[in-house]
Structures are given as C-alpha cells and as structure tokens.
Nucleic acid binder design. Structure first.
Lengths: 393, 393
DNA sequence: TCGCTATAGTTCGGGCGTCATATTATGTAT
DNA sequence: ATACATAATATGACGCCCGAACTATAGCGA
C-alpha cells in the first residue's frame, strides 16, 4: 500500500505500461539467462508478440544481446537472450585503512579488482582515487560505462554530498561525488556500507528473486545496520536510517566514538571483543587485531573464547531489538566474527530467543566476507537505477 | 527504488495507465474538493480531455459526484466535483475496557459513534459486536458500504486472522475477521492500533498530502509504535513490525507483560508513571488512574510531577532509539501524556538531543487523543485499498 | 521424399490509453 | 449585438498489449 505523494507524483502515459513490462522482462532475463523469448513469455505471462517487441527494444538499447541458438526435441530452435556483458560499472569500497576498486559487468561479475591504501587527507585520497579510476576506465576502451558506485563507512548528505558522519574516517564535510563525476564524466552514487551490503544481498544474493524483508548487521570496528522493508531500502530523513549501531543500550556504559555512552557497537563490535580480552579501557589503542583473537580462541585460549562469547551475547541483544521492532524474515550478519560462527551463533540465537519471544525468529545468516558484499553493493547501487521498478509516485 | 519480486509481480496492461492516473485524480479530488475538472487538469498535468474521461468513470463508479457550479469573473461556470458522501465505512476500535464504533464517509467524517464495554470473553464480545454492527449498517439503508476496519491492541496473524499477541486483551487465538465478515457480508481489515494511528495521520492528518516518513508512538497502559517509511507502512514478517515497545532496554529491569524484563514500555508507559508515583511493585493493581496523576501534577503535587518527569526521560530514551535507527522526519506521540506536554515535552526533547546527536532531530508532535486516531485509522484501513497507488509489483 | 506435428518467433488488426487540437457551452465586458 | 475568456467535450493520431493468424525450423514416420 503505497501512498501517493501529491506534491511529487508521476503521471502515467501510454508508455508507462511498456516501461513496467520492460523492467519485468529485463529482470527475468537477469535471473534466468540465457533464456528464449518463448520462455520469457511463459514466465512473464506476456504474449509472445509483446515479448518480441520488448526484446527488440532491449537489444536496440544494448541492455541485452542475442546469444547461441538452443536445441529442442523438435521445432524451431530458440535464440537465447542474455545481459550485455559490455556495459560496465566501477565500484569503489572505501574503508578506513584500504580502498578497494573493481570493474564489474551487469551480472556483478568482476573483471578487475585492486586495492589501495586509504590516504590520510581527503585531498591526496581524491587525487589517487580519480587517477586510478581514470586508468581503470581507460583500460576498457570498448566498454560503455553505466556509472560509479561508492560505499562509505559513514553517511553523505543527500544534497551537498558531503560526508557528515564518518567517525572511522576522521574526514569532515568532504564531497567525494562532485570531483569524481568531474574527473570521469560518469554519475556517482554514494551509499553507506551497511546499506550497500543490503543491496548486494538483495540484488545478487542466492534468493535475490524474492527478498522483500531483510536486515543486515555489519560487524567490524563498529556496527552498521541496513534495513530493507517492503522491497525497499529504508532511507529515513536525509538517508540517515540504519544507525542502530549507535542506539544507546546502557547510558552508563563506555563512551562511543559518536559521543554518546553505551551504544550497541561499544558492546558488540570487534573492538569491544578486544576490550573484553585485554581488559583495556575503551578507546585505548588495540594491542592485537581481532583476527588474532579469533585465532587464539580457535587454539583453545579460554579468555579469548570468553571474550567472543561476551561479544556474541551483546550481538544477540542488539539483534533482538531489531527483531522486536522490525520483524524481518531474515537477518544477515557480516564480518570477521562469522568465522567463529560455530561458537558465536548458538549464543547469539539463545539471547535472541530469550529477548524476542513474541516473534517468530528470523533466519540468522552469517555471511562470509569473501563474497565482498560492500564492493558488490556498489555495483547494485548503479544497477538498481535501471533494474528496479519504475517509480509510480 | 522498489525491487521487483519475480515470484509475485503484476504485469502492466493497456489499462494500467488509466488505473494510475485515476488514483492520482481521485486523490487530488480528495485533497482539494470541491474542485473543477479544469483545475484538476492544471494540478495533475493531465489534458482536460483525459480528466473529463476519468471523471466520467469515477462518477459512473460512484466514487465522486458532481456538485454545485462555481462562479468566475468570466467564462463558462465550472462544475465542482467532490467525493461521494454515500459510501460509508464502519470503523471499530477495540480497547481493553471499551470498544468504540463509528460510521464514517470517504472524508473520514463520522456520522455516528458509539461505545460499548469490551466483554471479557471473546464469544460474548463477538455476539455484541456483530449485533451492533448489523444495527448500524441497517440504519443507513441508502448507503453503500466499503468495508469494516478494526484496530486492535495487539497483532493478528496475517493468514489465520487469529490474535497472536495481545497482552492487554488476554484473548488468545481468536479470529475476529471471519465472524464479522460472515455477519455483515463486508470485508474486514484488522490492524494493530499503533499502525492504525499511523494511517490516520498519513491519510487524514493536516499534512497528509506529502507525508513519506513518520513514526508514531502510542502511550497508554503499554507502548505501541508504528513505522511509516518510503510512503509505506513497514509491516515486517507476518505484519509484526512495530513492537518497539517491547525492546529490552534493561535486562535487569522489572518484568513486562510480554514475559521479558525491562522492556521500554515498563519504563515509559502510563503504568510506569503510576508505579513511579506510588512506588508499588510492577504488575500490582494500580491504585489510581493515570488521569488522576496528571491532575495531581497539574495541581502542583511534587511527587506526581517527578513521576511524569521520570516517564518523560524514558520516553525520550526510547524515542532516541527510533530516531537513531530509523531517522524519521516526524515523530508523533499519542496518549493521555500529551496533556502534560508543557512539562513532558522539554524533558523528552533534551534526552533525545543528548542521545541522538548525530541526527537532525525530527519534529516531535504531541497528538490530542480527541482526534481519535485509532478509530480514524480504521477508516484509513479501508480507504487506502481504493486510494493508494496501484501495486506495480 | 513428403507430409504431420510441435515449437519459436513475427505480423497484423482491435481495443484502450493519453495527447493535442478543434469545437461547443456559457459566462462577462463593451 | 459582439468580442473575449473559460469550462467542458469531441475527434484523430499514436503507443501499447492482446489474440489470432502466419512464417520459420526442426524431428519423425510412412
């Protein structure tokens, strides 16, 4: 039930039906490729004639290409359609220490990836970034570029495009979008890293055909969340929704980087686990990396195991909050901590069951970081502009 | 950016454009009535000829009627269009002690209202309810009935329609929908009371033209929340989203009716304030009503004032959580406590500002209960089926 | 080799939608 | 009476989907 916004609606014209059906067909091709026109007609419910016209249009607009012809027990041989592999997207995943860039096609298959250190000052960073981006763009002279997607450990203002909340980057008021657009001539989409992870799962995950409800929790130095509801990313005012990592769970708790006390991420992030292990005061420079803690626990170090369990309990407590309030059918946990899921998962589930007994528990899925959800999400950021349902209102 | 659900989409047909534009025109009439066809064309951007055709159809389908003719400085006099006042809706607001029913037209103007005590057992309650409903329906013999909307202090299962979570009603597994539909022959929509309040504000509130983001917090014996994001009510799996009142804020806190400890509503509901005042243990039978507490505070009773302030602090703490996580542009607080807003509001705002400093603070609007958002929301529940944007996917 | 049948894909007319323009209806001002 | 302005309707062009007819292409059996 979508309310029509009377201050900002789009009229339907005679082309609206085509727009909608075109997107449906395009998505079906994306999901089932290679696929014949006849199969598309069966899957979509459109007439074969209509499918042919739409396919012709999609070919003319170079979204799809005709491929091999099939072979059937009898009858005319079908011509298979698939997404055009020559339309490329540049994805950039900015993290505090390293920035990863990749070139992907419409199937989110990466043709290249490379990593560079994230420079300390925004100016040098932008210099290096634009330089690398231009080199990457130049190395595919025959490609047509759809745009650039960027994921950030923070938030950018919707209008000024300036970074307004990025405690891990220590940059303030930096506009990454405009310089990148000027340097490349492509349109740039910025999005928070947790939201990028949501989009990655929603567009490229194994169940991407049908996801309509999902919450992603990214666990690293901090905790980020992305909420997908009713088939849409919940944006909130200015795109600021999703900072559940900074909800205050204990006002008497340790100070968080955001300035408050006792945020969820102060209790459940990687840094928190390290704090539990070393007994250090919050904010102190970590003496070992979270990976080391995981290794210690794996080797049977009791204190390390305890620290992970404490982290797991707090993860469960925060997730219980999300479950109680938003009732998602799935929750995806992303981060290094999933490598210790055998130990962490059961504890998390137990706390969750205790604290949200009124709800049918969602599936909790640990996600390997190897799928690179952040980077893949930047591709989704660009792809969704052409593959999402056309806006009605 | 709405993702297309490939397991459940609707194709566009040649009639889709008309469907969309028809809804837009219908909503414009609702918002600006009485209005001429010419003005509709100017407002919508449609051609006058198209508006005429759509109006003709809406008149034939009896959604609108032609009214008086206007008078202009010169030129042909316009015929004003307005919503048909003969299409009626029955709204029922079930509360633990009393149930209120009302008959409203498409403008959500109530023609009748009446209250009955909520019987203890579901069976007698349903008997009384169906009897009253039939009598009300019979008293408007010339009307055409759109349906029945019901708001509940709890949740009903989407498929079985049975009550699954209603701690205040002490009924279990009761199906209100099927008996009502059988008794009246009308279709019945069930919704949680907080969600009904959201719909009331979204469809009938002063800024109903443009609301796209809103969180409603209902404060009474418990706390309910409803989340409206991207122009849609966030439903969650099985329609269970919105139970932020039962998020655990302090696992060592008092026991809640839901079975957990330290839920938000244990600290910030009317019952909590009474507990702060009397110093009683939680769960004990209240010795006075919340209205009495408000009166005492108004008369200068210091302890009563302190109790309200404690309640306000906890309200602020919970709302901070919603603001941090969902970043709504507006938050509406509904309940008796808004009568003491001069005292409660500033404290709530202060706590909120402290705890969600990373976000631009939303507008906090106290809502008089006199507007009857619960009951009015039941009307919205039925109206939105015909006035919301047609589903694309 | 020649039909028969099944399947893929195309062509074409009908119905419905919006748009743009012309036309009619109905007022006021001169 | 005439000119002008405005509301509302009528008409034809074009786009889209549907459905039926048609063409293309294969395997199979007599």
């Amino acid at each position: 039930m979508q309310k029509i916004d009377l201050s900002n609606f789009r009229l339907a014209t005679s082309g609206t039906a085509r727009e909608i059906n075109r997107r449906i067909v395009l998505n079906l091709i994306r999901a089932r490729q290679p696929i014949s026109r006849a199969d598309l007609a069966r899957l979509s419910g459109l007439q074969r004639s209509t499918v042919s016209l739409i396919a012709e249009q999609l070919i003319a607009d170079r979204w799809i290409v005709e491929g091999a012809t099939g072979r059937l027990p009898r009858g005319r041989r079908p011509t298979y359609l698939r997404l055009n592999g020559d339309r490329l997207i540049l994805g950039i995943d900015i993290r505090p220490t390293a920035t990863r860039m990749g070139v992907a096609d419409l199937n989110a298959r990466f043709l290249t990836q490379e990593t560079m250190p994230t420079a300390d000052t925004p100016d040098t960073f932008l210099d290096q970034l634009t330089q690398r981006a231009r080199r990457l763009l130049g190395s595919y002279p025959n490609a047509s570029w759809e745009g650039i997607g960027i994921s950030l450990p923070g938030r950018a203002d919707r209008h000024s495009h300036r970074l307004v909340f990025a405690p891990n980057l220590a940059w303030k008021d930096v506009d990454l979008k405009t310089p990148m657009e000027q340097a490349t001539g492509l349109s740039v989409e910025l999005e928070n890293a947790a939201n990028a992870c949501v989009l990655s799962e929603v567009w490229f995950g194994p169940r991407s055909d049908t996801v309509q409800d999902l919450v992603v929790v990214t666990v690293s130095e901090g905790i980020g969340t992305g909420v997908f509801a009713n088939g849409q990313l919940v944006m909130g005012n200015g795109g600021f929704a999703g900072e559940f990592g900074h909800t205050v769970l204990d006002p008497a708790g340790p100070v968080c980087r955001c300035g408050n006390r006792g945020c969820w991420e102060v209790f459940a992030s990687n840094s928190a686990a390290l704090r539990y292990y070393t007994g250090a005061t919050p904010g102190a420079a970590p003496q070992l990396a979270f990976e080391d803690l995981l290794a210690l626990a794996e080797q049977g170090d009791v204190r390390a195991g305890r620290a992970l369990e404490e982290m797991a309990r707090h993860l469960g407590a925060g997730i219980a909050l999300l479950v109680t309030g938003l009732a998602p059918s799935r929750i995806m946990v992303i981060g290094e901590v999933t490598r210790a899921w055998r130990r962490v998962g059961p504890i998390l589930q137990r706390v969750l069951a205790e604290r949200s007994r009124t709800h049918t528990p969602p599936e909790i899925e640990p996600a390997e970081d190897t799928a690179q959800p952040r980077l893949r999400g930047t591709i989704a950021l660009v792809i969704q502009k052409h593959f999402a349902a056309p806006p009605i209102t």
